[in-house]
């Protein structure tokens, strides 16, 4: 499948399957994995050029582009986690029960989908999820900064100094900064490339297109300025400890970065789900790039624990 019309939009969806010579039939009977990218700077390519090929050696992998991202259609609304979970339910309706690996906001949507559709999700890998720590200092009430915006260096400072309409300004600045640093090949990617973080880095750096009106830049600008995505995210309640606890016995892997603002997210996961596996890897928010090899090993090991009868 490449494009799917569902709900009110046209979605781009990539399916990877094990190459035939290396794919015993049992590989295709294993539970599939749906890998969800981060908002704004992410797309299906984030996984395609990093970890998805290794996972797809043994099982089917599905990589959707969220609405307004990658090659999926941009709509005016529909960017809250509940709406995105409804999108995801439609985009996975043809699959048997599946595992999810979600990065950033993708992890929040994964939790909401698992809770809304018990039995559909077999295991959850939460990669640097933006779950608030119970001990975290709440931002001022006048500055409803969406959790993902705090991933952007300087966003917190902007929030402190921002006037009452801080939410949109900060969120826009945050997304723009993220776009400049991660999408347009700024410091984090350059550093990762120098450190030999993996060949996928070069592909992601290519998003720094020399085409002045490249599709990537147009898409990001359109998403930020022509939709309600920032308002919807600002109004979106973060995943709570109660929601995590409601996952019950679902196997959960949580991985956070040493330098990520979301590192404290491991704490509510540990409290709510003491049987979950939790790891801290060296790196920031984009662990699929900077800690690609270790994250690949953690994820493939976690998935191999699949105990569903074959």
């Amino acid at each position: 499948m490449s494009f799917v019309h569902t709900r009110d939009a046209r979605f781009h969806v990539i399916d990877l399957t094990p190459a035939k010579p290396a794919a015993p039939r049992r590989a295709l009977r294993r539970e599939p994995v749906v890998m969800l990218h981060e908002l704004f700077t992410g797309s299906a390519a984030s996984w395609f050029f990093t970890i998805a090929p290794a996972v797809a050696r043994t099982r089917r992998v599905r990589l959707p582009d969220w609405r307004g991202h990658g090659m999926s259609e941009r709509t005016a609304t529909g960017y809250g986690a509940a709406a995105m979970a409804a999108d995801l339910a439609e985009l996975t309706a043809d699959l048997p029960p599946f595992a999810i690996a979600g990065h950033g906001h993708g992890a929040s949507v994964a939790v909401r989908l698992a809770l809304a559709h018990p039995g559909r999700v077999t295991r959850l890998a939460l990669i640097d999820p933006p779950f608030p720590s119970p001990r975290a200092v709440r931002p001022p009430a006048s500055a409803k900064v969406p959790a993902w915006a705090t991933a952007v260096p300087g966003a917190a400072l902007i929030a402190e100094a921002s006037p009452p309409r801080a939410a949109r300004v900060v969120a826009t600045a945050g997304a723009r900064a993220a776009g400049e640093s991660r999408c347009a090949g700024g410091a984090p990617l350059a550093e990762a490339a120098r450190d030999g973080a993996g060949p996928g880095v070069a592909a992601l750096v290519r998003q720094a297109s020399r085409r002045p009106d490249s599709g990537g830049r147009r898409r990001l600008a359109g998403l930020l300025h022509e939709t309600r995505v920032l308002d919807e995210l600002a109004a979106d309640p973060p995943v709570t400890a109660e929601e995590l606890a409601a996952l019950g016995t679902l196997p959960v892997l949580a991985v956070v970065g040493t330098d990520s603002p979301f590192r404290p997210a491991a704490e509510p996961v540990e409290r709510a789900l003491p049987r979950s596996r939790r790891h801290v890897l060296a790196g920031g928010h984009d662990l699929h790039i900077t800690a690609r090899a270790r994250l690949t090993r953690l994820l493939t090991t976690f998935l191999e624990e699949d105990t569903c009868p074959k």
Partner: peptide
């Protein structure tokens, strides 16, 4: 060259 001459973006290469 995909990168140097076509300036292909990553999601375009995936497509």
């Amino acid at each position: 060259a995909f990168n140097e001459e076509l300036a292909l973006e990553s999601i375009e290469f995936v497509a």
